[in-house]
Simulated scan of single mutants.
Amino acid sequence: MPAPTPLSFDRDIRPLFTGMDIAHMKKSMDLSSRDSVFRHADAIYQSVVSGHMPPASCGEPRWTADMCATFKQWQEQGGAP
Rank of each mutant, 00 (worst) to 15 (best):
P81Y: 08
G79V: 02
W63P: 03
D12N: 05
V37I: 12
M20K: 14
G79R: 00
R14L: 08
E60A: 13
D42W: 02
C68Q: 07
I13C: 00
T18H: 06
G79L: 01
I13A: 06
D21A: 08
T64I: 14
G51K: 07
G19L: 13
P61N: 12
V49Q: 09
R11Q: 10
L16Q: 04
M20G: 12
D35F: 01
V48P: 01
Q73N: 11
P55M: 05
Q46K: 13
F17D: 06
M1C: 14
M20E: 08
H40Q: 14
P15S: 15
V48I: 15
R11I: 05
S57C: 07
H24A: 12
A69R: 15
R14H: 11
A56F: 03
W63K: 05
E60D: 11
P15L: 08
H40P: 04
C68W: 03
G78H: 07
S33T: 08
D10A: 06
A23C: 08
M67G: 02
A80N: 14
Q75G: 03
M53S: 14
T64V: 08
H40C: 08
S32T: 12
A69M: 05
W63H: 04
L16M: 13
C58L: 08
D10F: 00
G78D: 10
P2F: 11
Q46N: 15
D35L: 13
L31C: 09
P61S: 11
L7W: 01
H40K: 11
Q77P: 03
V48R: 01
D66G: 05
P54I: 04
S47H: 07
R34S: 10
R62I: 02
S47W: 00
S36Y: 09
V49H: 07
W74F: 10
M29A: 11
H40L: 07
D35E: 14
M25W: 00
M20S: 11
I44G: 00
L31T: 10
L7M: 05
D12M: 03
R39C: 02
